[in-house]
């Protein structure tokens, strides 16, 4: 069995191995984890001819630098407007190229976006937990965080010459400054003025972010009643308001239950674009009815599926050369 070996020379915080995630275990305190921007992650894999949920590397605003120690392997970079430097050339994310022994690859933040994905034509060898390589940040379970000195091994690496070049970046991959929410399920803790402030004021992202969630800056909207509710389930997208009235949007590695009231829940189909906002970017919340939420999510799912189908087609006839 052939393999390609890469050595990590630098990795910023929150750079980790992810895959499609471990859904269905929230009842045991385990969130799904997986990529923050699931659509861009799938794009990187699909564009290479991989299954959409194959293990890959999630790169944060901290960036990543690595060197190919041995072997030859094609790779795809998708997500955000990051800058990719490879073997002396410079391109944007949303591209496919081939990494050879001795070559360096650097991915760092560019004009937009907070998360970028690196997928390989081959099987990234990674530790699994409960059937998934997705890294759960606070426990470190799964494939794990990448740090300087780490080695990545890719089994059965392939070179996909015909797939090399750009991957179309869909409009839906851009950050969204207006995200749709369904109010509740604990909006009863808030008076009309607080709900109106939540929906009409401009909020912004802060530096207090990680894979568990992002704190927002905006008006204080403290709950109007004692915080004595028994802990209730939390989902990815829950907008939780603490006792001081500060809002946090829970994300991929969220706690599965919590005792703070959730004023609203961001639609799951808007979260991939929401997480691409950067600290200090403005964001506003637009309420939709549950029925509108369902219909938006179906429309967006159709668009994503058509997009992934289209990029899978490119190079489908290409023969892998090893």
């Amino acid at each position: 069995m052939s393999e390609a070996i890469l050595s990590v020379s630098f990795a910023g915080p929150h750079v980790s191995v992810q895959d499609g995630g471990r859904a269905g275990l929230m009842r045991y305190g385990v969130p799904a984890s997986g990529p923050m921007d699931r659509r861009s992650f799938a794009a990187a894999n699909i564009a290479l001819g991989n299954p959409a949920d194959a293990p890959g590397v999630e790169v944060s605003l901290g960036g990543l630098a690595l060197e190919c120690v041995s072997g030859t392997v094609s790779f795809a970079v998708a997500g955000g407007g990051f800058i990719v430097e490879h073997a002396g050339s410079r391109r944007s994310s949303w591209s496919i190229a081939t990494l050879r022994a001795g070559e360096k690859l650097t991915i760092r933040p560019g004009p937009w976006g907070s998360w970028c994905y690196l997928a390989f034509a081959g099987r990234l060898q990674s530790q699994q937990w409960l059937g998934s390589a997705a890294t759960h940040a606070i426990s470190g379970f799964g494939g794990g965080r990448l740090t300087a000195g780490a080695r990545l091994s890719i089994a059965d690496p392939a070179r996909h010459a015909k797939r090399e070049g750009g991957i179309p970046c869909p409009v839906s991959a851009r950050p969204r400054q207006q995200v749709r929410v369904v109010l509740g399920p604990q909006q009863r803790f808030f008076d009309a003025a607080a709900i109106s402030a939540f929906l009409s004021e401009n909020w912004s992202m802060t530096d207090a972010w990680d894979r568990m969630g992002v704190r927002l800056a905006g008006p204080a909207i403290p709950p109007q009643a004692a915080l004595d509710m028994p802990s209730e389930p939390i989902v990815r997208g829950s907008v939780q308001i603490n006792g001081d009235g500060v809002a946090t949007v829970l994300l991929a590695d969220h706690q599965t239950t919590g005792g703070y009231p959730k004023i609203a829940t961001v639609l799951d189909c808007d979260l991939d674009s929401f997480v691409q906002l950067r600290p200090r970017d403005a964001v506003a919340f637009r309420p939709v009815s549950p029925a509108e939420a369902i219909s938006l999510s179906r429309t967006i799912a159709m668009g994503t599926s058509a997009y992934l189908h289209a990029i899978a087609g490119k190079g489908r006839d290409a023969r892998a050369e090893t």
């Binding site: 009842r27 028994p230 209730e232 389930p233 599965t256 549950p290 029925a291 369902i294 999510s297």
Partner: peptide, 22 residues
């Protein structure tokens, strides 16, 4: 139906929005 998450006094029922609605 995707999963149910029981808590103290409540249970969250998750479903696939392509196949089901609230």
């Amino acid at each position: 139906f995707l999963e149910a998450i029981p808590a103290y006094a409540s249970i969250l029922i998750r479903f696939d929005p392509l196949l089901c609605d609230h």
